[in-house]
Design a protein around this nucleic acid. Structure first.
Length: 890
DNA sequence: CACCTCACTTAGTATTCGGACT
DNA sequence: AGTCCGAATACTAAGTGAGGTG
């Protein structure tokens, strides 16, 4: 498993490179293949060192994964971007490794069953397509971002024409192979890419225009004249039931009109009352009505504490604790509530960020070389910037401009007169002050630190819990967000803007009416206090940068979160039952007469196979330009009739959530390919690929197929089912615990790759890898030494043959065994480390993998659950821990 | 339908913790 | 006792999707 020697890390760019990289154009570059037979699928060994990064043993495992079609999905591929514009010394070419699957005409059932077990084919070396211009790499024309309403009739015509060509029913079901970018490429813009470069199209002057209107217009046009075909309902009755229930609920809530208007309005001075207050009041009333209605009916069933009697509450709490002796509320053993989230909710309100502490006299801000005493408000904002001086953000123009403009708003008139240019501002003293302060804090004597810890604990105890239906539940975030500079991710147009301090006057409190209403800080008022038990939040405020609402909610270990989580997996399990039907339906729809239907079917295919996110539309200019499935644009897709020995290869390259790049080359079934050609025809790069589709319509369609089905359920389903399959495949009972855990980790990683969960290579990676290598070397020496000694002992025993020499020999044998074992463990560790350097396992573990799968696996293979889930995770998944036995099947 | 708000989940990164090592 | 380092936690941005309104 030889983890490449020193070169194992040689590809790491310097920090500066890294920084620059993030601002740089995302460049796809002519690629070359990984070494034939190389395990290109895995993320480990990415980059120039990847060929050497695996031992035979490790490869063996990997191949096993591959043969069984590791998820049939994404598989890591290594690409390397050269960034000539940065004058990098090593103008490395892309190193791509496309492992893809042979078409396999394996058909099960009427529809083309997806063949999950195709072989692997590799790309030929060299450029796959001579790709010169990459969307947004600057070398191509920068398309004007526009989604032209397309004449519906024209589309239908095209469609008809196309249909003639692709009426054949080829059973090409080739599996997706995901090409992972390698480290360098991600840094070159892979991980997060600047819009100003790759996605310039979207930041052009006209691009800020919301895309919504356009798409909708197109949709409307398309809908006209589109034949309505019978919709298949997989769960029609269920659906009907749900709707009638909803109608009933609505009717009831209308009846109870005026029942509850319990609202305590804050008495803040007029100036602080917000314009939206009226609205929110109305909403509150509306909600309260609905709630009141439900409350009345549900009370008897509830926890029986709706009277808010404190004593009763305490008893309940105690009882809850005693029940489990571990103080856990076994809510999963109780009946599930429906719309009502709680009957009793009591808490202390949020904990506010401490007020600003002015800089000491010795710390100065300089303007144009001269010290300048700033007003408190201006100084505070200056410190926000000063603190970040060594962060990449402060080098970005957008950040600087936003900051400066917002900062000036905080200045006094006189200050504004003077401070006109950011580049004349000198924050270095401020910066140094905070660096020193942090260092001083770190260097605090043990006692002092202990004291701080105790204080934090006290705070946690006081503000960090609430009482929900008689049980003490932990709050997830009980502090308001402190003021600072907005740190948008990727190429966010608002980065650097001032995020203002949250005041009690901004905060809406939600608690039960008969509870102790939290006290606002002295001299302040809440904006509003309401009692809405149809929602789960305890407090909320509107943040000024994005104008979005921030909430104080419960910890994942709470009932409210746990129940929802459980329900999520149950929905995914229901999908399991109908997914094949859905698949055959979307396959059929690829040939639909209706454009919208085709687009829907292809989009769904992507969502299902590639685990893409739904891709809601976003407001242009307000956020970074990122997309998901429905919002894909033509520029994000490239079609290759043939690539790497596979036919019908689709290349997807776009920035997804958090501006994480998704890059994948995947062979698709022929109809999909043909449809994509059709969808892209006569469109500009900036046009929507699925111009007839929105997430809303897609989800509506899904809802018809299965109650509760939405696009994101596919992600959950595919992630969980993949874990289960992988675990089954990779684990053998006779493995050591360590080996089993490695298998788990691999299965987990397969999911992470599927879901494109990436992370920046840890800053300490290079160093810690070196350390590990050193350890391995040392261990090797020890092993060699032990071998020599064993030899000696053997010889000694042969000559002497007495008891002493015998026991000495045995001792040496044991020692050698132990050392060898340790060596293996170290190697394993190193392999894992390498493989995981850019893959974030936590996200899928926490959000996509049904915990019962893992728990069942632990039980079946006698792996302690603690090896898989840490304390926090066990708390979050307490419900699963309690209910999953070793036979659990997702 | 278009637009908008709201609630809640999912996400990556920064910071802190705590134990091993020196 | 101090340092180092990975793991755990804290933080908050960025998604999804439901539902209201006109």
């Amino acid at each position: 498993m030889a983890l490449s020697g020193p070169d194992g890390v040689s590809g790491q760019p310097s920090k500066t490179q890294e920084k620059r990289g993030k601002e740089t154009v995302l460049q796809a570059v002519p690629g070359r293949m990984a070494a034939p037979g190389g395990d290109g699928r895995e993320l480990n060994g990415q980059g120039e060192n990847h060929e050497k990064s695996k031992s035979k043993q490790e490869k063996g495992k990997g191949e096993n994964l591959e043969e069984r079609g590791l998820l049939e999905k994404p598989v890591g591929i290594h690409t390397k971007a050269a960034r000539p514009e940065e004058g990098r010394g090593d103008s490395r070419s892309t190193q791509e490794d496309l492992s893809c699957r042979e078409q396999e005409p394996k058909e099960r059932g009427p529809g083309e069953e997806r063949a999950r077990k195709e072989g692997q084919c590799h790309h030929e070396k060299g450029t796959q397509d001579g790709r010169e211009a990459v969307p947004g790499d600057g070398s191509e024309q920068v398309p004007v971002r526009k989604t032209k309403p397309r004449d519906a009739r024209k589309c239908e015509e095209l469609l008809e024409r196309k249909q003639l060509q692709d009426d054949d029913k080829e059973g090409t079901d080739v599996w997706a192979v995901k090409m992972k970018t390698d480290h360098d490429e991600r840094l070159a813009g892979g991980t997060r890419v600047s819009k100003g470069t790759r996605n310039d199209q979207a930041s052009g002057p006209g691009s800020v225009v919301s895309r919504r209107g356009k798409k909708r217009r197109v949709l409307r046009a398309a809908e006209e004249g589109a034949g309505k075909s019978k919709e298949r309902k997989l769960e029609g009755q269920d659906q009907k039931d749900k709707r009638s229930r909803e109608r009933e609920a609505q009717r009831r809530s209308e009846l109870s009109e005026g029942a509850a208007e319990w609202q305590v309005q804050g008495q803040a001075p007029a100036g602080t009352q917000h314009t939206s207050r009226e609205e929110s009041h109305q909403r509150g009333v509306k909600r309260a009505r609905g709630r009141e209605d439900v409350e009345k009916e549900e009370e008897p069933v509830g926890a029986g504490v709706s009277s808010g009697n404190e004593k009763k509450v305490d008893q309940e709490g105690e009882r809850g604790q005693q029940k489990t002796d571990g103080s856990r509320w076994r809510w999963w053993e109780e009946e599930k509530s429906q719309d009502v989230k709680w009957t009793q909710l009591e808490h202390k309100g949020p904990y506010f960020a401490p007020p600003y502490e002015p800089l000491p006299d010795g710390v100065h801000f300089f303007y144009d070389g001269k010290p300048m005493k700033l007003s408190l408000a201006a100084e505070e904002v200056a410190t926000f910037y000063g603190k970040m001086l060594d962060h990449e953000y402060t080098t970005k123009e957008v950040f600087q401009n936003n900051f400066f403009s917002d900062w000036r708003k905080e200045m006094t008139v006189e200050e504004r007169e003077v401070i006109k240019h950011l580049d004349k501002c000198d924050f270095t003293e401020i910066h140094r002050y905070f660096v020193d302060k942090a260092a001083a804090r770190k260097a605090l004597p043990w006692q002092e630190r202990q004291k701080l810890k105790e204080e934090a604990e006290k705070l946690q105890q006081e503000f960090g819990y609430c009482i929900l239906d008689g049980h003490r539940e932990k709050i997830g975030n009980f502090k308001t967000e402190p003021p600072g500079l907005f740190r948008g991710r990727g190429d966010h147009p608002k980065m650097g803007m001032l995020k203002r301090r949250v005041m009690p006057e901004d905060v809406v409190i939600n608690c039960s009416r008969d509870s102790k209403i939290p006290e606002p800080p002295a001299g302040h008022q809440w904006r509003e206090v309401r009692s809405d038990n149809t929602v789960t939040w305890l407090a909320a405020w509107t943040e000024n940068v994005q104008n979005s609402i921030k909430y104080i909610m419960l910890n994942p270990s709470s009932k409210l979160k746990g129940e929802k989580d459980w329900q999520k997996y149950e929905t995914a399990r229901r999908l399991k039952g109908v997914v094949e039907e859905i698949r055959s339906q979307y396959r059929a729809d690829w040939k639909s007469q209706e454009m919208k239907r085709r687009q829907q079917a292809v989009a769904l295919y992507f969502i299902d196979k590639l685990a893409l996110r739904a891709g809601n539309e976003k407001e242009g200019g307000e956020t970074a330009d990122t997309v998901g499935c429905c919002s894909l644009r033509v520029e994000h897709v490239r079609l290759h009739p043939e690539a790497g020995g596979c036919k019908h290869v689709v290349e997807l390259d776009f920035l997804g959530k958090d501006s994480i790049r998704y890059y994948n080359r995947v062979p698709v079934e022929k109809p999909v390919y043909k449809n994509l050609q059709l969808f892209m025809e006569n469109k500009d790069p900036g046009d929507d690929l699925f111009d007839r589709l929105t997430t809303a319509t897609l989800n509506k369609h899904l809802q018809d197929l299965m109650c509760g089905l939405t696009a994101k359920v596919f992600r959950t389903y595919n992630a969980s089912i993949t874990l289960q399959e992988q675990l089954r495949e990779l684990t053998s009972a006779e493995d050591s615990t360590a080996a089993k855990i490695l298998s788990y980790s691999r299965a987990n990683r397969a999911v992470a790759i599927l879901c494109n969960h990436q992370r920046a290579t840890p800053k300490t990676f290079e160093k810690s890898m070196k350390n590990l290598q050193a350890k391995i070397e040392m261990k090797k020496e020890q092993v060699a030494e032990a071998k020599v000694e064993l030899k000696k002992a053997t010889a000694d025993f042969k000559t002497k043959g007495d008891g002493t020499s015998r026991s000495f020999l045995e001792k040496k044998q044991r020692l050698l065994e132990k050392l060898e074992e340790q060596l293996v463990r170290l190697h394993t560790q190193a392999t894992e480390k390498e493989e995981n350097k850019q893959v974030a396992l936590g996200t899928s573990k926490l959000n996509y993998l049904d915990p019962r799968i893992s728990i069942a696996w632990c039980k079946r293979f006698r792996v302690p659950v603690e090896k898989i889930y840490n304390k926090t995770q066990r708390e979050k998944f307490a419900w699963a821990l309690a209910m999953a036995d070793e036979d659990f099947e997702f």
